[in-house]
Design a protein around this nucleic acid. Structure first.
Lengths: 157, 157
DNA sequence: TATTGTTATACTCTATAACTATA
DNA sequence: TATAGTTATAGAGTATAACAATA
């Protein structure tokens, strides 16, 4: 006979546990479309805002610029983004979303409601709305930036 | 001017984002006590139940037995567990919690309410209780085992 | 001098396979 | 033949340091 650990019903652990599973499910959907979480982070960041240089992307997502090089290499090879020399700073590359990249972001976004349904299938609509509001409130309290995932960071701090 | 990505307020992303930050904060507290998340998983699993062999621990936590060897090595060196030859199967090692190991589990558990306060400092007591109940409901719906963290698994499935 | 992008090297973590001793 | 534990090797991912071009 064994009992559950005492921390099993703590907020810290529950959020971490449920969040990890959600991230796994999210990652599986992304993998089915042939894209990694990091690459999708770059893609959606470009989609949401203006064109950015590699350094700006690094700062925004918390990915080290050394690692950004290979990531953009792969994304450019996949045809999702294109590098263009910056007009204002000739050291920098502007990373621009291609039509294929924008289409991929749209395709992923289209799949998310289905994933949310899977995750919250034991909840009522009202409960889902309450949960979403509470999570947004916590995210704000923890000073998390909208749409920026902590695990994208190279440095684990 | 840039807007948030469309997925930023989805349950899948919010849970993943807030969960990742919670896991980071949890991990930092563990690190301050000199223990990794994996080692703590083993420790608390032993604390909650009966003595187990390395293979049983591997099955319970989803950590590959090859990796369990080094993990138990470190934990034994730290004085948290001890290996004893199983009486019923001389191939296997019973991994037993030492007094120091049990004390460490207790010390970590003692710190968790403070961490929960930090995470939910923008919530009322009622909101905290609602959130905890909703998360437990989701964890059940996703068939997560109490106290078992998905990220302990070696194989990312 | 400092910064952007890049490359090279080392280090860590994990996956796979094989070995031994028991069953 | 199968299983528990162990070890070795290779691969992926990351950190650190350095470099060339430009500011």
């Amino acid at each position: 006979m064994s009992s559950s650990p005492s921390y099993a019903s703590s907020l810290a652990f529950l959020l971490s546990q449920v969040g990890a599973r959600s991230a796994q499910l999210f990652g599986e959907r992304l993998a089915r479309k042939g894209i990694s979480a990091r690459a999708f982070g770059v893609l959606s960041n470009l989609d949401a805002g203006r064109t950015q240089t590699q350094q700006q992307l690094s700062d925004a997502l918390g990915i080290h610029r050394n690692n950004m090089v290979g990531l953009i290499d792969e994304m450019e090879a996949a045809g999702w983004v294109a590098r263009h020399r910056s007009m204002v700073d000739r050291r920098a590359f502007d990373v621009r979303l291609t039509d294929a990249g924008a289409a991929l972001v749209k395709a992923v976004a289209h799949d998310i409601p289905d994933l949310d349904d899977l995750i919250s299938r034991t909840l009522t609509i009202e409960q889902r709305n309450v949960l979403t509001a509470l999570l947004l409130q916590i995210a704000q309290g923890l000073e998390l930036k909208a749409g920026i995932h902590p695990h994208l960071s190279s440095t684990p701090r």
